[in-house]
Amino acid sequence: MLLSLEGATVRFGERAVLDAVDLEVAEHETVCVLGPSGSGKSTLLRAVAGLQPLDSGRIVLDGRDQAGVPAHKRGVGLMFQDHQLFPQRDVAGNVAFGLRMRGAPRGERTERVEELLELVGLPGAAGRAVAALSGGEQQRVALARALAPSPRLLMLDEPLGQLDRSLRERLVVELRELFGRLGTTVLAVTHDQGEAFALADRVVVMRDGRIAQSGTPLQVWQRPADAFVARFLGFENVVEATVGDAVAVTPWGKVPVPEDTPRGTRTLLVRPAGVRLVPADAGLRCTVAARTFRGTHVAVHLQPEDAPRLEAACALRAAPEVGDEVGVEFDVAETAVLG
């Protein structure tokens, strides 16, 4: 393992911002820590970088305990949330900073700066002032600056947080390609699930300083560990249910679940695609409370008579109007029992 955290704990006063976190990152792996703001994910990066001392636990990099190793000697890169480019230096001055700190000769620095600016898609920008850069360009310079000293671990704090949506979606693809090509080991944190799923080999969901779930994007998406993770991923249809024989009893009535589901009181998730609309006289009777256009489909919010709301994903043409009465049936392929 390139990086491992063992019981890493950071307290601000009484509150544990990192609460006995265990995490491992293998070489060439891209791990994305996902969580709402205040879940401790930035503190995690700062602790690994050496900017935030641990109250207990250890951080091991390349087999060496990092306790007492100051930030500037850890050899990790960190791209800050709002970039933190040095305002009084030009683009080249920023990118070359880490190389200068390592005492690289001038010729080598110039060469490497050009190479990196080429890599991040800003060839010829070396002489520009950082204040004159757009948000996307600043982001690229910050990335080039973090990559320049070839850190053994690159950490990204909300790497695309401040950019507009279309730029973000393009950059996420570029980053993934770039890290694959360079073989960089990456630990990123974000609150945006789309970003995390697009970027990461493995996603780690954090809540209140603890790790709630860890797995590949597909695993996390298909089987969120608990109601918190499910809701954080944007799923609304989460209820307590009593699981019996391939069927779960819920406030929405009986919902089919996969055969091998253990019995007992469990948390049940029905993905919106698994809520099928049928004529009002069949299935669970609901009123359409709201509908939102989502581009590829329409999200329809349904209000059953005596149960929590349901969200259904409908094809554009088939979507009912607000106020319509519909019936609901559930698709076993889109239900999951959590935990």
Partner: peptide, 22 residues
Amino acid sequence: DVRLREAAAVLGASPWRAWREV
């Protein structure tokens, strides 16, 4: 911004060097 100093530290600048450079 303290984070400018931190950025310098992560890029390998010792505290004194970070003060001088930032």
